[in-house]
Amino acid sequence: MNKIWFSPLVLIALLGASLNVAATDEVNVYSYRQPFLVEPLFNEFTKASGIKVNVVFAKKGMAERLTREGEYSPADILLTTDISRLIELKAKGLLQPAQSTELSVAIPAQFKAADDTWYALTTRVRNIYSAKRLGKIDFNYEDLADEKYQGRICTRSGKHPYNVALVASMIAEHGKADTLTWLQKVKANLARKPQGSDRAQVQAIHQNLCDISLGNSYYFGNMLKDEKQKLWADAVYINFPNQNNRGAHVNISGMAMAKYAPNKVNALALMNFLVSAPAQKMYAETNMEYPVRPGVKPSKLVAAWGQFKADDLSLETIAKHRKAALILLDKAKFDL
């Protein structure tokens, strides 16, 4: 009896030992971001530091996985594409503060947590794309509710984090009741049920199905780089909304150190690398996002879209209104 129960334990111990041996000089990343977006950066990091980066990518359930893993979690760094996720991870107590001179130099105060638990890496604007056939127009998000655009608007699911964050910023500006009315009117203007990705909306404009869509800034740049999609992108203008008032809604992609990070030193090294000027330049060039580090310029293409005014609403406020935004989207039956 003793023998039988002992052998699995030995096996487990051996297995564990081998896992631990393998864990030196590595850093483990849980990423909400697609691997092909971040892999070039990690390759550079490994080249420079000799530290191997292990990645697991999942859009859904990362927070749950971290919670369940608790103190034995192998995760060191978390990468997200949305402020709300970072705030959620923080609220669940899954993060720890990370400090270094590099980080404090690189990231302005409005792009990080007050307690240093998370840092933004890039910003992205929620743009309004419009068909070139309409001519140049100065849009406000509020205009999407205008009756003159009836049947002319396309968007992806309202429940997508990018749209939820936009709705949250609308709540911060106008309050729940007005935002609900706005949502209902936008829904009434939709050319079709919310579906597909941000790029698919541009395609629909190109195909004359609608005239206006919501989309993140970097998609426009990426589409212009793609042979097939350039055709679609050429049919639209990218517009920065609300330039005459509060400014365009901005979200971030960010990073944080996991509370139980087993490779803290390596993790901090990776964080320092990701905010370094060369890495920030790569973000700008390959992903067409706006780097957060002061002094690093966006790519030429992105810069060509012009300067814009960003809404200075704090990221925490956006995250705070997230749940309310979801409730309003449900109430408006936006996706149905």
Partner: peptide, 12 residues
């Protein structure tokens, strides 16, 4: 495992 003096095997 830790109580028995082994290194923690991780999330096996």
């Amino acid at each position: 495992a830790k109580a028995l003096g082994f290194t923690a095997p991780g999330l096996i």
